[in-house]
């Protein structure tokens, strides 16, 4: 017990004791969590299970939850299919997602801080106009945006795929909400040291915002990776397909290639799963930091 207290650095009013009630409640909580986790993982299992099945098996009346055999040759088939630029698609998506995430985090973090902290008489108006962009369904301004981008000669280019996705009302909104509750005394300390807004932002605010930056990076990266409508319109040629566009080929109108569809879905989310599990620890640490500060 003594070690526990010294570790937590804080005096606790109650010593944690194991009572029957606590054990039951812990079992209930873990039980619920495990059941829910199984439900959440089920679709992923289906992707793999159907991805490693034969085309006929997926839609056959004899379909069973645990298949008789797994066809791992489907994986080589997928990667060696000359009609499906699967590897190119993964690389294009990585390129687009990395650049878009970097750009978006930078632009929106700056704007979010400005909107939250810098006293400017129009800042509320501007904030609401940023929010407005959240409420406009993108499918609707789609054609004008396409015409603008094509007038820049950006169709079938990397900048055409990346740049329009950088300016996000959503990310700006979340950054602003975060900076609103950023402790003032830290910034005040910087001000006493003679720093301006710019200096405070880079030397004090950014280093203390690791949690939110990694959290929003993950969200932005996922959104960029999963974007479909825009890459479909701008990345017109097979050399510029992103992975989502490549996968949509398995749903083309004459021949739904289901085992490749399921398998490629599973493979396409694999990088995100890895990224998330790596950043997960970092995000948690980031949140703990900000929790201590409060």
């Amino acid at each position: 017990m003594a070690t526990l207290v010294s570790q937590s650095m804080r005096p606790r009013p109650h010593k944690p004791k194991l009572t029957t009630g606590k054990v039951v409640s812990a079992i209930l909580r873990y039980g619920t969590l495990i059941i829910m986790a199984l439900f959440f993982l089920l679709p992923f299992y289906l992707m793999v299970r159907n991805g490693l099945a034969t085309e006929m098996d997926i839609s056959s009346p004899q379909w069973s939850f645990f298949p008789g055999s797994l066809h791992f040759e489907n994986i080589t088939e997928l990667f060696s299919d000359p009609d499906v630029p699967f590897v190119d698609g993964m690389i294009n998506s990585t390129l687009v997602a990395v650049l878009q995430t970097t750009g978006q985090i930078l632009v929106c973090m700056l704007a979010g801080y400005g909107l939250a902290r810098i006293p400017y008489r129009w800042s509320n108006t501007i904030f609401y106009s940023v929010l407005l962009t959240l409420m406009i369904p993108f499918a609707v301004i789609f054609v004008p945006v396409y015409v603008i981008v094509s007038s820049f000669q950006w169709v079938n280019t990397l900048q055409g795929l990346v740049v329009p996705g950088i300016f996000s009302g959503f990310t700006t909104f979340l950054f602003r909400q975060f900076f609103l509750s950023f402790p003032h005394e830290l910034e005040e300390a910087g001000r006493v040291d003679g720093l301006g807004y710019w200096g405070i932002f880079w030397r004090i605010v950014v280093p203390n915002s690791g949690g939110i930056i990694s959290a929003l990076s993950v969200i932005t990266f996922i959104a960029a990776w999963n974007a479909f409508l825009w890459p479909l319109a701008v990345g017109q040629d097979s050399s510029a397909y992103t992975i989502q566009v490549v996968i949509s080929a398995f749903m083309n109108s004459q021949n739904v290639n289901m085992h490749e569809l399921f398998l490629s879905t599973a493979i396409a989310i694999l990088p995100l799963v890895v990224i998330f599990f790596i950043l997960q620890r970092f995000i948690v640490e980031g949140y703990k930091q900000s929790g201590l500060k409060g």
Partner: peptide, 10 residues
């Protein structure tokens, strides 16, 4: 300063 921060987004 505000426009330095929010300008690119706007």
């Amino acid at each position: 300063v505000f426009w330095c921060f929010a300008g690119p987004l706007i």
